[in-house]
Design a protein around this nucleic acid. Structure first.
Lengths: 387, 387
DNA sequence: CGATTAACTCAAATCATTTGAATTATCAAA
DNA sequence: TTTGATAATTCAAATGATTTGAGTTAATCG
């Protein structure tokens, strides 16, 4: 009979927790700030912010960065995140390999690793993963006591759906509580997400969207994914499966990811007798201005225009970011050649951001994004997400 | 230099405010509950809930509904919203008319009115609107002291966009701060939204989605709109223009709203020599199983399938609700004949809700939805939305 | 009928923020 | 160079809300 609430009640303890996060969030967003400025931004008193900052400094989360004189008055002591104040583990599980990265609180990867897999059975994956985590901690011992959590990216869709088997699901993972398994295997709080959402959060935490609270991210994985960030928060849908934009039909027939994905370009190039197994091969072909690749790009740009039209009109983002497992040169080519739909709510003369841009993260976007999910939760996410 | 925060800091006063809202939200969702149950749901103590409920009762927001014995122990006093405890004004501005409705806190319309307009100039609209508000207050005098705010629905898109003039924009309203104008004209706090978002919130507050936190609403206005509710909150996009789904291209050519909208059916019927000016006419034609109308319905069902495919795969909603300015019989027909896409993340064998359903609200959906936006804010919205 | 259970109330304790006064360091004008 | 204004910061006390713990009341169960 009880209605499960979308929010918990508040008390002094939870207020403090929330304010701590908010202060950390302000510091992260600003790079370095003084206490009074944080207080103004959060509508708190400087006294409160002073108390919280003293605590955070004590905990090793913040560093003093010297005073900054700005006009009259006592110069404010500037505070910045201590990169070594906290670490997040990012994990990306693919059918053939596991990627792991350890990120510090500044969002920089301090270790990265790729472990080849012989199958995707949960036991196997979990064991490899725990081992990789152990190696990362050995390499960065000071992280051991300061782990904030682990973010894990897996091919969706999550939960039991009627399209299991059609997509890129992982064998053996359809009917298990993946989050609980991971949490137990590595002994950390876990956030589970799909690749596109994680990549989007990576851009939000330390990429091109760090000052753009509402944007969409088109992610080149095996297929094509969409990550939606609305007012700083991920829009994951009812079951975390939002963003399967690759499945939507194209005007000319077929699905979007038939024309716009890594599989798509690989198939196209194979047919043309120019197999391109990996990103490096694609990059070389592009540098050589390969005719078959340029053909694919023409069709892909058209598909991208369709995707933009759909995403912009449905979601009204400040910008659309393009990224994922594609050479930067090809992403740039797409960004430059795709024509922006005229009939779109995003077609605004007063726009402050380009409507389409390439993401900043490279090859490990999703892996780093997985860790970014943890950092996002630790550094200023709203209370509603904190349990 | 200061980074504007997505959340404010918390203090005792704001905690109390938040907890008041959360308690009201629980009461609304449950219909009638006891204090201990609310306390459990919100992770607060019964003492705290008791204090807040005493205050809310004092303010006339809650009514005692007698005790309910549930097993052992002292039977809990049940509390319910006092419908007369608060009122919200809902306003829908159309090019040719203004609709106004006064809703009580239970979500019921206590007055409704339609005022024909001779033009859409701001001065004219604001004057008519203030007059309509005055008449509503005269009819329900006890509302005067208990107004929670006004929700206003206008044709989008909001702000300056490159497609101004293409859509259903209102003349004279493109470059004005509509929210401020309305707030000044009627002396109430104002929420501005588009029709689809408001209609979605109406279903959330007192319609078929009252227990569905994540859903999409396909709204038949002049065109076709989409309202997205994610974990209880509207996804409005960067400029409040999210949901312009009518603009997206159809596989067969043209835009979605060319096949699926009131304008579409009116054009189709006019061409077929069976003009249908209003909803009543459409309803009569459907009752007569008019061949031309059935033709349109076939094409519309196909377009709806495309829309479902896009919305489900991008947003992963628990359900898609169909509603707006269409006869219920026609909406039902569409719900029954549209084939649900198989390749969709929403195709789940374990789904608890139908994937597609008709909305509960009738003709005044958007107007009542406008008021629902206010009620939503007053009854349990997260702190982040409260300024 | 007594024991148990659960809702509720009262008063005191607790926690975090706010308030108000005092201190310090810089800039700008005399 | 001096003086006054400005703004950041700290200290101690006050405030506001929740929590804690003990006690009361009214049901069900055995």
């Amino acid at each position: 009979m009880s209605v499960l609430p979308l929010q918990k009640g508040s008390n002094a303890e939870r207020s403090r927790f929330r304010n701590r996060q908010a202060v950390l969030g302000q510091v992260r967003a600003a790079g370095a700030v003084g206490r009074a400025e944080i207080a103004r931004a959060l509508s708190l008193t400087t006294q409160t912010v002073s108390n919280i900052i003293a605590e955070l400094k004590q905990d090793g989360m913040l560093l003093e960065k010297g005073t900054l004189s700005a006009g009259r008055g006592l110069p404010a002591m500037q505070y910045a995140l201590n990169p070594e104040g906290g670490y997040a583990l990012g994990i990306e599980v693919r059918p053939d390999a596991v990627f792991a990265a350890l990120l510090d609180m500044a969002g920089r990867a301090v270790t990265t690793e790729r472990v080849a897999l012989r199958g995707s059975a949960p036991q196997l994956v979990l064991a490899e993963l725990a081992a990789a985590y152990g190696r990362a901690l050995d390499a960065v011992p000071q992280a051991r006591a300061r782990m904030l959590g682990a973010g894990i990216v897996m091919p969706g869709p999550f939960g039991v759906t009627g399209i299991t088997g059609l997509g890129s699901d992982l064998d053996g993972w359809q009917a298990v509580d993946a989050e609980a398994l991971f949490a137990e295997a590595i002994g950390l709080p876990v956030v589970l997400s799909n690749d596109a959402n994680a990549a989007a959060m990576a851009e939000r935490i330390s990429g091109v969207a760090s000052e753009i609270p509402t944007f969409a991210y088109l992610y080149f994985g095996a297929g094509l994914g969409l990550g939606l960030v609305h007012r700083g928060e991920l829009v994951g849908g009812a079951h975390g499966n939002a963003g399967e934009i690759g499945h939507i039909p194209l005007p000319g027939g077929g699905r979007l990811e038939d024309a716009l994905s890594r599989l798509s370009v690989q198939r196209h190039m194979a047919k043309a007798g120019r197999p391109a197994r990996d990103i490096e091969a694609l990059e070389r072909l592009y540098t050589a201005q390969d005719a078959a690749l340029l053909d694919w790009l023409d069709a892909a740009a058209l598909a991208l225009e369709h995707a933009l039209s759909v995403v912009e009109n449905i979601f009204d983002p400040q910008t659309v970011v393009l990224g994922g497992a594609m050479p930067e040169t090809i992403l740039d080519h797409l960004v430059q050649t795709a024509r922006l739909p005229e009939r779109s709510v995003s077609n605004r003369p007063d726009a402050r951001h380009p409507r389409l841009m390439r993401g900043a993260s490279g090859r490990m976007t999703a892996t780093q994004g997985a860790a970014a999910l943890v950092l996002h939760r630790a550094l200023g996410a709203p209370l509603s997400q904190l349990g």
